[in-house]
């Protein structure tokens, strides 16, 4: 790419602007730097917390423990990818966790109780994920309901469907092993140099890689950012904003379907009551990852780092023998810190 800056021609009538540039305090420089690279905040927090916990408990630094953290965040990380898309459009999706559990029940039930060939059950499950996204998208774009309320509603609806379809019964691990081992695929472990990973971790990384490509290297991605940034400006600039929003919700639904498949591998069974807090955990990862709740700002890689930060805190505090309640306490402050920093960074533009 030809990114060499053009020579700066001094320009008359621009003294105000140039004055601004020369008279910046270190704090303002930091603000501008973070404005340009918002993902640096979570990156720094992640590095510092890894070092700190490594110093506190020597076990923390083992390849095994670090890879365990990856395993633990794989499902919520994948959900966070779906959540990021919606939040980039200045929306929020409270239904992602319910969708995930519902889809895992759909896949498990079709494969085990209805004798549908497993690949087809998975395919139908992903289709149902797309359908749940389409429902959210239609309510948001056609009825113009706020995403928060829409997905609060569909969250309850999907949970109810989930209890109905599963009759509140868990499909046990042995049953899956016997009849639908493919559903547990993403729980499969493999080892590289002392680190034990699962295919679920690989799935999470692939989902983020694909989204990175889609958001930065395709027209669709640029439009998603534009719609999240200023929907009226985007519409005047010729973007079909409703179509873009619809596509975002549908893609998010499909990713929830993938997370569902991954969650079966993680838990080892299909449980209609699992992952109850994954909605809020996914939002936590996105916010800590530096994506603005006001839309249009932040890197898609941020939520991956955000999910890792939460995983590192949980693992580090546990190894240090600290009560679980302090994990919640720390996560709470991280969220507040992340949003405060986002607000501060956004002041640059005004």
């Amino acid at each position: 790419m030809s990114d060499t800056p053009d020579p700066v021609v001094p320009r008359s009538g621009e003294t105000v602007a140039s004055f601004e540039h020369s008279g910046r305090s270190p704090l303002q420089k930091l603000q501008h730097f973070l404005h340009q690279f918002p993902t640096m905040v979570p990156v720094i927090v992640l590095i510092l917390s890894v070092i700190a916990f490594g110093l506190i408990s020597p076990n923390f630094f083992s390849a095994f423990n670090l890879s365990l953290i990856l395993q633990q965040v794989a499902v919520v990380g994948t959900l966070a990818a779906a959540q990021s898309l919606v939040i980039l459009t200045a929306g929020i999706d409270l239904s992602v966790g319910a969708v995930m559990v519902l889809i895992s029940v759909v896949m498990g039930n079709l494969a085990v109780n209805y004798g549908v060939p497993v690949p087809i059950a998975i395919f139908i499950g992903l289709g149902c994920g797309a359908a749940t996204g389409a429902l959210n998208g239609l309510l948001v774009t056609r009825l113009k309901l706020p995403p928060f309320i829409t997905t609060l509603g569909t969250w309850n609806i999907f949970l109810a469907l989930n209890y109905y379809l599963s009759a509140r019964e868990t499909i046990r691990s042995q049953t899956l092993d016997a009849e639908a081992p493919l559903l547990k695929f993403f729980g499969t472990r493999f080892e590289i140099g002392g680190a034990v990973l699962t295919y679920g971790v690989v799935l999470m990384l692939v989902v983020f890689a694909v989204l990175y490509y889609a958001l930065y290297k395709t027209a669709w991605g640029r439009r998603v950012y534009a719609v999240g940034d200023d929907p009226e400006a985007a519409a005047l600039a010729g973007i079909q904003t409703k179509r873009v929003l619809m596509s975002v919700y549908v893609v998010a639904g499909i990713i929830c379907g993938l997370a569902a498949w991954s969650s079966i591998g993680r838990v080892g069974s299909v449980s209609p009551t699992s992952f109850f807090e994954s909605n809020l955990e996914s939002i936590t990862a996105v916010v800590i990852g530096g994506i603005s709740l006001f839309g249009g700002r932040g890197s898609i890689l941020g939520p991956l780092i955000g999910a890792l930060i939460v995983g590192v805190f949980n693992s580090g505090l546990r190894l240090a023998g600290v009560d679980v309640l302090w994990q919640l306490f720390a996560t709470g402050w991280l969220i507040i810190l992340a949003v405060a920093i986002d607000q501060w960074i956004r002041k640059v533009s005004s």
Partner: peptide
């Protein structure tokens, strides 16, 4: 083609992104 009074630019996107918005 129209230049609106409000300009219809996406503030967080780059100049090039804005120039080609919708016709990348």
């Amino acid at each position: 083609e129209t230049v609106y009074q409000t300009l219809a630019l996406s503030p967080a996107l780059s100049i090039a992104d804005n120039m080609f918005m919708g016709r990348e």
